[in-house]
Nucleic acid binder design. Structure first.
Lengths: 207, 207
DNA sequence: TATTTCAATTGACAATATGTCAAATTAAAC
DNA sequence: GTTTAATTTGACATATTGTCAATTGAAATA
């Protein structure tokens, strides 16, 4: 079990030790299988997931809780995996221009790496309230980053009212969204070309 | 039934007449209820749909077939309702600039009108193969329109290679996509502001 | 080695959803 | 009044999520 309430006193201390490692590995296996299933078919059933990861259906429930929780775990993991920490790179860039370039590069890379998976998850988010809130929360972080970039980019010019500034931030946020990247990749035919096109497009958008 | 195989000879001709009208009205009622359900909760169950539109679950199956078919009918209808015919306006504009402006106006209006519904349907399309093909097919039409607009826009200049041209088309297609509009509306806070921002952004993108 | 602990399995179950079928109902057309 | 066919009703079959309790099995302790 994930956690247990001690209604019965333990006669003996017990360290999970290697058992925890095994448990962790099966957790990974489930997430990997979930990723594979989502990327190929788009459907994600507990039954198929259990079979693919070589555990029982109940075990997945024990490890994650509900089906939604599996998706959430996958989504959470993605940020860590794909180096959301590279965002520091963006923030510490020497000037606005290079901040913008770094931001575009980081996000384009991020979106390109897990494009199919993100497409599925964002799709689910459009239907499912809970996943919707999760995606929205992450998007809000990008709004914050856009704000900082725009701030630095126009640090010199004081002849810009707050509406104009808000417009720039909105444009930058929208153009660094997964949705825009995916649409661009779709109409380009591949993600690499889309990634290459991003910076000039974004630059012209925030001018 | 939708259609029947005559295994028994009819003794008498029969014109549906008013019965057809009634049937058509219930069809409308179902679609309206489906729209309402999708816009509010995002979930669409046949049971709730039947209750909301005041018919039996079986009737919906008779009228549409499957649950997916209801969604498809709703999606098909949307194009007709929201005036895809206004596309002629785009094609017959006197010059490239005005074609571009018309295209942006038409699509921004189109996306804004049914934003929530489109969000749901595109979400489903990201998961469901069949709906995915439908949305993709419609998107391809926009690619064609973008091509015409870019063609006219740069009719004078011959100093543009095919890669450059393809890039413009891809950018225009991506920036007139629902996904981009929705992302922009999200970061603006409302669809109206997003619609107003579109033209300048698109213009700068295709330059 | 024997015992204890707990992850994992198994099987049963309830709840919800889609989709199909056949018989009965009902309202419109003839 | 009879015929026609849309609509309803109720019964199924199937698939899916989620929970429960009892069992199993492997690792940790003594």
């Amino acid at each position: 079990m994930d956690q247990q309430v001690n209604d019965r006193p333990c006669k003996r201390p017990y360290d999970l030790g290697r058992r925890q490692e095994v448990s962790d590995r099966t957790r990974e296996a489930v997430l990997a299988a979930a990723r594979a299933q989502l990327e190929t078919s788009g459907a994600l059933t507990m039954e198929a997931l259990a079979k693919a990861s070589g555990v029982s259906r109940q075990t997945i429930h024990n490890l994650f809780g509900t089906r939604s929780s599996v998706l959430e775990a996958l989504f959470d993991r993605m940020a860590v995996d794909s180096g959301m920490m590279r965002m520091a790179e963006v923030m510490t860039a020497p000037d606005g221009e290079r901040m913008l370039a770094a931001m575009v590069e980081v996000f384009a890379g991020f979106w390109a790496r897990d494009r199919m998976l993100l497409k599925r998850i964002h799709g689910i988010a459009a239907i499912d309230e809970e996943m919707g809130r999760l995606v929205e929360a992450r998007n809000r972080r990008r709004v914050g980053i856009s704000g900082r970039v725009v701030e630095r980019l126009f640090a010199g010019r004081s002849n810009m009212n707050s509406d104009e500034r808000a417009g720039k931030v909105a444009a930058l946020t929208a153009m660094t969204s997964f949705e825009f990247f995916d649409a661009l990749a779709e109409s380009c035919g591949n993600a690499e070309t889309a990634a290459a096109m991003m910076l000039p497009l974004v630059r012209r958008a925030v001018e």
